[in-house]
Amino acid sequence: MTALLSLTDMEVRFGAAESMASAVDSVSLEVKSGEIFGIVGESGCGKSTLANAVMGLLPGAAHVDGSAKLQNREVLGLDEKSLRALRGDEMSMIFQDASASLDPTWPVGDQIAETIRAHRKVSRREAKQQAIDLMTEVGIPDAASRYGDAPHRLSGGMRQRIVIAAALANQPKLLIADEPTTALDVTIQAQVLQLIRRLRDDHGTTVVLITHDLGVVAEICDRVGVMYAGQLVEVADTADLFAAPRHPYTRALLAASPGVPTESRRLATIPGQVPAPSDQIPGCRFQERCPRRLETCMTTPHREPVFPNEVACWNPEPLPAGMASPTDLLGEK
């Protein structure tokens, strides 16, 4: 399969000072067409910043370097007009709190029709009909009569469905979902995840799903990237990652959330603290908390480009017998 989204050396810094360390630090990765790719990490690890950088939604104070290509087209550095043409059409994004994502004063249906009319020359009536069809598709019963409802009249799960319908109204190639279920009840969470998977299956939409919740990853992601303190530390197929985590951080993360995949849990049981973006750390940013630390880790960051089943670590967990990885030779010294 070909790469729909490929990021190379993505770097995001806030503020002008050169000394300000990156919120996102040289992240490279490829998301294949049609897959659901999870990005997992603790809050503040830079996963949301990375997503917003790809969408061109960061505030003006942010400096973004590197390259992000959507279907081989560079999206970083595009002017606002071209970006706007892409957003909501070729790529869409949904956010954590659906209630906050909808304009409280607008009827929900109009907020879907708005995406259509922002990109297609269609009549109001046509846009409305399409919006109602979309509402039906995302599982809103009696869609035509709910079209005119204000957001506060819908339940949280229904609002998230509206948000998804609005984001997918123009059948974008890429959907970035930033913690789409965190604000929802557990039972509703599962339904919304099912919906995202079904829409991917029906339309071939590529999904980048950002979450702190390994349960969500296990439930729907095909592959997953783990981020720590602004860096991508491991990328693997979901099954492999759960079966045999290579990076010590990934392992700690898994150990800290035993209830996978039913219960979401904050990852608070790893000893030590995440370094602040401004901390100047030579070497690996996980060194302080790492049980497998080597001399090298203290001085030299592991900056090998990360590709399938690779791990940015000088001393990764060994693979169990029977599983082979092209990076074994690199990892084991």
Partner: peptide, 17 residues
């Protein structure tokens, strides 16, 4: 500054709108 403005931008809605 409200979050829904971020979602409007993500939908590609124009700034004047």
């Amino acid at each position: 500054t409200r979050p829904f403005v971020g979602f409007l931008r993500a939908k590609g809605v124009s700034e004047s709108r």
